[in-house]
């Protein structure tokens, strides 16, 4: 290992990424966060306020903000927009009744100036449930193809089994790092 490699590694250590995780209540945001962090997911209560976790992943320091999704809290989401590198929008794929709500809230976020540069990852969560719509149908329902302002990807996943969480996270980090850290 040469000196350059070591220096490069040290430089990578400093790479901090701020991820903001939003979505309607009961979408599974806290469960995703805990599962990704290897914590117990069986004793979760609804999030009033927010959770923040800092974790190392593939040489990046991730600051993940998980903010409560109930209607009365949504007006406070804006307080967490500042310096967000990536937005993770979590959808309960089995909650067909509120999909239009879900679409509206997401599109409202995308016009926010302070989120303009952020990469968007949509987690079509709860794929383990029998009534869940596949990611492709969630994409249609949320009209993701209309989004031209942000890099985006939709990923079907299950926070309970952990399926595809890593794929989604790897993509968003890779996309952010290719935008931000290529200048190094």
């Amino acid at each position: 290992m040469g000196l350059l490699t070591i220096l490069k590694k040290m430089k990578q250590k400093e790479k901090e990424v701020r991820l903001l995780m939003l979505g309607l209540d009961n979408a599974g945001k806290t469960t995703i966060l805990k599962k990704f962090n290897g914590e117990d997911i069986n004793t979760i209560s609804p999030t009033l306020g927010f959770n923040i976790k800092t974790l190392e992943h593939r040489g990046f320091k991730l600051n993940i903000w998980d903010v409560g999704g109930q209607k009365s809290l949504r007006s406070y989401w804006r307080n967490y927009f500042e310096s967000t590198d990536g937005l993770i929008w979590v959808v309960d794929s089995a909650d067909r009744r509120r999909l239009s709500d879900c679409k509206e809230e997401l599109h409202q976020l995308l016009v926010e100036e302070r989120l303009a540069g952020a990469t968007l990852l949509v987690f079509a969560n709860k794929q383990d449930l029998p009534g869940a719509l596949p990611a492709e149908e969630i994409k249609e329902a949320l009209e993701l193809d209309l989004i031209k302002t942000h890099h985006w990807l939709i990923q079907g996943c299950s926070a309970v089994t952990g399926e595809n969480l890593l794929q989604g996270m790897d993509w968003i980090i890779q996309d952010i790092s290719s935008r931000i850290f290529t200048m190094d």
Binding site: D25, N26, I41, N42, T43, I44, S45, P46, G69, Q70, K71
Partner: peptide
Amino acid sequence: QGDDPMTDFRGMGLLG
């Protein structure tokens, strides 16, 4: 949180 309390009990289940 919403119009159906069912989804709010989560990990606390019936105990909540």
